[in-house]
Nucleic acid binder design. Structure first.
Lengths: 215, 215
DNA sequence: TGATGTGAAGCGGTTCACAGCC
DNA sequence: GGCTGTGAACCGCTTCACATCA
């Protein structure tokens, strides 16, 4: 185990490993080797070992990893042993879909509040989640101990929403607005940009295919 | 201009550049330098030049790039000069939200059909888009000339849906199922995994913050 | 023997720095 | 003078290969 900076690529994979282990556990597996994991889930065994080794020596030589034990380690590493309270800013189609999506599938994240500027939406509920006036953002964040924000507003409003989020002291942001945003200070933002994904697929479709069927 | 393999990171950025140029054009800019682009949108000027140079010599030394001209080049490179027909598989919350999302914002993509296995949903419409029986997939794909598929079904069904898509001859897939999928043959798949994004944010939140406010 | 943990090699992408051109 | 296009340097991630240990 080394004390060095962990790359985001590694933390992303940690999340994948946890998912794989959950599946193995549900099938009753007690131990698994890095090679076994790699084969089943199309991963690279050396990478699995290296990623895990950043955080500790979880394996047993000649045996592999104990599934349940490693799951617990991963949950702790990923901070999934504590509950996260999520605010969704933007109660349009995307925002409301996300409200349900997280609520249903993610046990460690719960959507505590939604926000919008549209008077017709304020006060309504999406499932159990109330839509608040965006002007009450800081107050509600504080009251409900919200520590994750999701930006689901149209692109032109995204930067100012991000600043609002930053001012409220939230450190983790998931952004769906298709626009480069400037992040200030000690805030982590992840952007999910569907336009980029689609246009990149479009690029692929526009390429001539070789005779062997590969690019 | 070199003849070499273009990385996906580059094509992703091409999409970003196009967006930036669209914004500049709407503000009436006629020319822009790589440095100007970089400064305004928090990019790297050398990378912009290098990315563009993979596809041609679009710039003029001492001047920069002509905005409208470069936009046209980028659209053509990204295959955005032709219409793409999209099928969404899974008419749940996410699928229906996406149906509207694309229809509203993306001019070169149009959602032609949705699919589900739930008899109660089949025949209904989301906006203008009809929900078909998943068993009619191949037929509808052929009839409507669908060339992009979106997987918005629960994880356990995703692999078999992907195989259905592949069999129907579709080459571009956008996957929202949080699970590693095995892609066969000449198919390009992009995965948008919200669980990974969230858990990676959770990891960040779990880290101790240094006194200088940086990691 | 079998699988981990890890130094070293390999590879790909980013950034630098400058020659070349308008 | 200003900005592009690009070889070279740099950097970080991935993969290999093996010493190490149960």
């Amino acid at each position: 185990m080394k004390v060095e900076k962990i790359s985001e690529l590694t933390t992303n994979r940690m999340s994948v490993y946890l998912r794989c282990l959950n599946e193995l556990a549900s099938k009753g597996a007690k131990t698994v080797s890095s090679d076994g994991l790699a084969k089943q889930f199309h991963l690279n065994s050396a990478q699995i070992r290296k990623d895990l080794a950043y955080f500790g020596e979880f394996g047993v030589r000649g045996v592999g990893y104990y599934v349940d034990e490693l799951r617990e380690h991963l949950k702790k590493i990923l901070g999934l042993n504590t509950e996260h309270c999520v605010a969704i800013i933007g109660a349009g189609r995307l925002g409301t879909a996300l409200a349900d999506y997280y609520g249903l599938t993610q046990t460690n994240f719960s959507v505590a509040a939604m926000f919008d500027a549209d008077k017709n939406k304020i006060g309504n509920k999406v499932g159990d989640v109330e839509i608040f006036d965006i002007r009450d953002f800081a107050r509600v964040v504080k009251k409900d101990k919200i520590n994750v924000a999701v930006i689901a507003v149209p692109a032109p409003f995204a930067q100012s929403v991000l600043e609002l989020i930053t001012k409220a002291g939230i450190k983790a942001v998931l952004n769906f607005a298709p626009i480069p945003l400037k992040v200030e200070g000690d805030v982590k933002m992840k952007t999910v940009d569907l336009t980029i994904s689609l246009e990149s697929l479009s690029y692929f479709l526009a390429q001539p295919v070789n005779s062997n069927g590969k690019k």
